[in-house]
Design a protein around this nucleic acid. Structure first.
Lengths: 218, 218
DNA sequence: TGCAAACATGCACGTAGTGTAATTGCGTGC
DNA sequence: GCACGCAATTACACTACGTGCATGTTTGCA
């Protein structure tokens, strides 16, 4: 069997078992059986069930990375990040993550590997940004600036997804996705404004979600 | 034996083995032997070696949390966060974290539990901030604002520590600690300014590591 | 057809983590 | 002093994880 196909079969089987049995309620042997391979072969591909599942999340965040890299080099970092994040609010893209999110809610094992995926994404963004600045201006970006910004962007994306999830429960309806998109935009706006206190300067922080359906007001 | 004492004995033994053997090169049985307890008893206290080690990191970040909670309720969030983070740049406080940081550099297991600790800290800050705003103004803070800000603050703290570590290698000399303090302050400044591009306003972003105690203007 | 590389498998072994029941240590009331 | 109860520790057994190693099996290429 093709190597990529085997890999796919494993992740599919793992995801299916995750759905049916719930996190933690199935073994590597179960996955191997479902994928019609031996237990040993499973470990040739992934070091753990967790890793097999995490591959899905990684794939999701990689599309965000890809989007980021596609942005023009001259564009402000924050704007590129915003665009990359918004591209995630797409049914096909967000679906697997939404599912893992819901499953991970009650499962520490799962949520920790999601944490790892986000962190991995941060690292990637840092190197992408460094490349970009090197190519464009020739100016060596301050290391602290780079890391703090990248980390904050990811944190904001994560926060937006958290809020979205707690509001919409991972629903994939157009309204829900539009809400997610708006949350992602809003979080970037907050970050770009230095989190100006909403009570002191309300105009600067919250003018965001007035556009679309926006059932949110709190 | 007293329960707290046993717990302490375990973490001490685990840390000692971490130092001597390096991460991943010792078993639960080794820890149990070193702590003069049975393997089974170890598992009565911690679910894994990782958890035993993570307890140290958690302790560190909890002091930051404590600092945050001590700040006056009226103070701007960002200022409280800055103060809490700076309080970490203390020899006694930062020493254990610095050590784990260096050990975790090459060890995925370890660094992932550190990730978890930072995340745990984020969650705590969110709830602390929510309590504070509830008590003070009676205004319900926007959920997205809260989460994005808390996440960004933690990310910036993490970024500062990353940079500090890559520069000073976790050294605990006064100069190194002063540099850490400055990095923490600078990262908060960056966050507060919405990461104004360093090339457009260079004065705000890069005057950092010039050792001197106070080039900060915000 | 034959050969070689890549991939899959079986087996053995050490370690992780958990349920269960037995044991030890210690203060309390009688 | 002694029996009792409670909490901590321990022994034992068992399932599952993860890996090294040797062996099969497939695939592609000369």
């Amino acid at each position: 069997m093709n190597k990529a196909a085997t890999r796919q079969a494993i992740t599919d089987a793992a995801l299916a078992l995750l759905r049916s049995n719930g996190p933690g309620n199935f073994t590597v042997e179960d996955i191997a059986d479902a994928a019609s391979i031996s237990r040993r072969t499973f470990f040739n591909y992934f070091g753990s069930t967790e890793a097999a599942i995490a591959a899905v999340t990684f794939g999701f965040l990689d599309t965000a990375l890809q989007q980021f890299r596609l942005r023009p080099a001259g564009e402000p970092f924050m704007e590129s990040a915003r665009a990359a994040l918004v591209a995630l609010a797409d049914p096909m893209t967000v679906a697997p993550l939404a599912e893992l999110y819901s499953l991970g809610q009650a499962n520490p094992q799962l949520s920790r590997s999601e944490l790892e995926a986000w962190d991995h994404c941060t690292v990637q963004i840092i190197s992408a940004a460094r490349e970009r600045s090197r190519g464009a201006a020739g100016v060596e970006l301050d290391e602290l600036y780079l890391r703090a910004l990248a980390g904050s962007v990811i944190s904001c994306g994560k926060a937006a997804m958290d809020v979205w999830f707690s509001r919409c429960g991972g629903s994939l309806t157009p309204e829900s996705l539009s809400s997610l998109r708006q949350l992602l935009i809003d979080s970037m706006t907050l970050l770009g404004s230095g989190f100006a206190r909403p009570d002191t300067t309300p105009a600067a922080a919250t003018p965001a979600n007035t556009s679309a359906p926006s059932p949110d007001r709190h």
